[in-house]
């Protein structure tokens, strides 16, 4: 899923400076799961913004709404009845959701309340870690199901570098060496011999290198 974290309150407050009526919009998908922008977080942020404004001797008119999916136009449409009655939208979705709202409502300011972080998985309650960078040409089949692009600090396709110590990356003891994990997994799978196959230079066109990407499925259009 896509993970995100709330921006500092001061930054959000600064972005809505001068706005009295705010539509605070959450999303029921990924950001709900990572506890950054679901219904609960919308309520908390609304209360926090209200109190921060009260401190300054103002009150805000805050409407709270959490959409099923903020990155789909059908759901974003639900904001229509509110748009003319607010000065700004504050979105608690990932960057995709923020942009979808901005695209639909061209004359309304839309401000992000979250920093979108990465595509990741949960490693336990309250812990999420990066797993995929969407390179567009998955090589997990070659690397024992562990992605060196997302999980090696130098995205080495032929690692590990010389800085791996006790299975940890040289940048931090909190980061596993991806290539150590790959090697251990290769051994478990009995495919150690494949380690010596050099993975050739990657064609980044399938990733961001090729410019903004789009998927077109004729059968669904």
């Amino acid at each position: 899923m896509i993970t995100a974290e709330r921006k500092p309150l001061d930054e959000i407050m600064e972005s809505i400076d001068g706005c009295g009526r705010i539509l605070l919009v959450g999303c029921n998908e990924c950001v709900t799961v990572c506890a950054a922008g679901g219904r609960k977080e919308v309520a908390l942020l609304a209360s926090a913004l209200q109190m921060a404004s009260m401190k300054k001797g103002r009150t805000l008119d805050i409407r709270e709404l959490t959409l099923e999916r903020q990155c789909d136009p059908e759901y974003v449409e639900e904001l229509t009845p509110h748009i003319d009655q607010v000065d700004a939208v504050v979105s608690m979705a990932c960057g995709c959701g923020v942009q979808e709202v901005a695209r639909r409502f061209k004359k309304t300011h839309v401000y992000p309340a979250l920093n979108t972080k990465f595509m990741g998985a949960s490693e336990g309650p309250g812990i999420w870690a990066e797993r995929c960078q969407g390179c567009g040409d998955c090589l997990l089949g070659l690397t024992g199901g562990i992605c060196p692009i997302a999980r090696c600090a130098k995205r080495l396709m032929n690692g590990p570098c010389g800085g791996s110590t006790n299975g940890k990356c040289e940048i931090s003891n909190d980061v596993d060496c991806a290539w150590h994990l790959i090697w251990e997994r290769m051994k478990e799978l009995g495919i150690e011999d494949r380690y010596e196959d050099v993975i050739a230079a990657k064609d980044w066109r399938t990733g961001r290198g090729g410019g903004p990407r789009k998927i077109l499925r004729e059968d669904l259009v």
């Binding site: 080495l156 396709m157 800085g163 050099v198 980044w204």
Partner: peptide, 20 residues
């Protein structure tokens, strides 16, 4: 890694790795 230098904020290119 840039982390160890004085430009920790720099983009880490690695279009190729040393092997490539």
């Amino acid at each position: 890694h840039p982390k160890f230098g004085d430009h920790a904020m720099a983009a880490n290119v690695h279009d190729l790795d040393s092997m490539q």
